[in-house]
Amino acid sequence: MGGKVTCTLGEVKNRADFIVYWGGNPAECHPRHFTKYALIPKGKFVPRGRKDRTMVLVDIRETKSARASDIFLQIKPGKDFEVLTILRALVKNQPVDRTQVSDTGLTMDQLQDMVDRMKRAKFGVFFFGMGLSMTRGKHMNSAAVLTLAAELNAYTKFVAMPMRGHGNVTGADVVMRWQTGYPFGINFSRGYPRFNPGEFSTIDLLVRGDADAALILGADPGATMPQPCIDHLARIPTIVLDPKVTHTSRLAKVHITTAATGISAPGTAYRMDEVPLPLRPALQTSYPTDEQIIRRIYDAVASKPDWMIHSGKMTSAQI
């Protein structure tokens, strides 16, 4: 399995002549994406802008983004992995079972045409959304699109990039990556980072009830996570740091109001292509920033006695 072959949005703007949106609806969810980076702008190697680019939309229903596309491929729900696997086979001129291709909602001609266009492109991009990464198959769907992009580099330049759903999700991934080597699903309980999504990722931890405390930073799991997670968050001491009162704050033991980064606090946000952008506050506030609060919590914890076993037994306060 390959990693992620990717680039910045500046490269997409200046070079990409073949753009695929997979399982996303940028026209409604990322409204500035077309005009600023991907489709409309004129670039150094695509001087005529939209006219020099081909846009393909792959989705299970005809969204508003379909109107902006040159080719719309409507696939059946839950068939993303199958379509990507067929594409991988066709790219290498390998046979596929034609009788099963129609189950994906596409015809063999459509898929072959897609492969020919991908190979002919000078610079291709896959933008994949949560319609791909959060449906049946999950991380394997993402792995399939990333592998397809990596393998297409045997013929032409091709990259892949996730379309993120919330603000600065990329930032969390990037910071965890340069700190630990892993983007998410990390456990520090033995003093060194261990990575195992499915075991240490948030939803799995909470569903199994493996955590006995939670610190929620810049997220609202109470609004988005499955009910068993929310129930467990309500059972354990949950601390929420957020500029506003969220669904999670209502079930938390402690809510600490913070300054809103980018509005009343400075900071750094990572764009979806992992380019860091400095944020300058426009307003003043009396609330502390996330960083100030975390530092104070850290200092308070550091001043507590060590929990390691000395002299064979721990004191009851340490347990």
Binding site: T85, A89, P95, V96, D97, Q100, D103, T104
Partner: peptide, 8 residues
Amino acid sequence: PLLPTFHF
């Protein structure tokens, strides 16, 4: 059920 990339 098999993937379309398996053939008889």
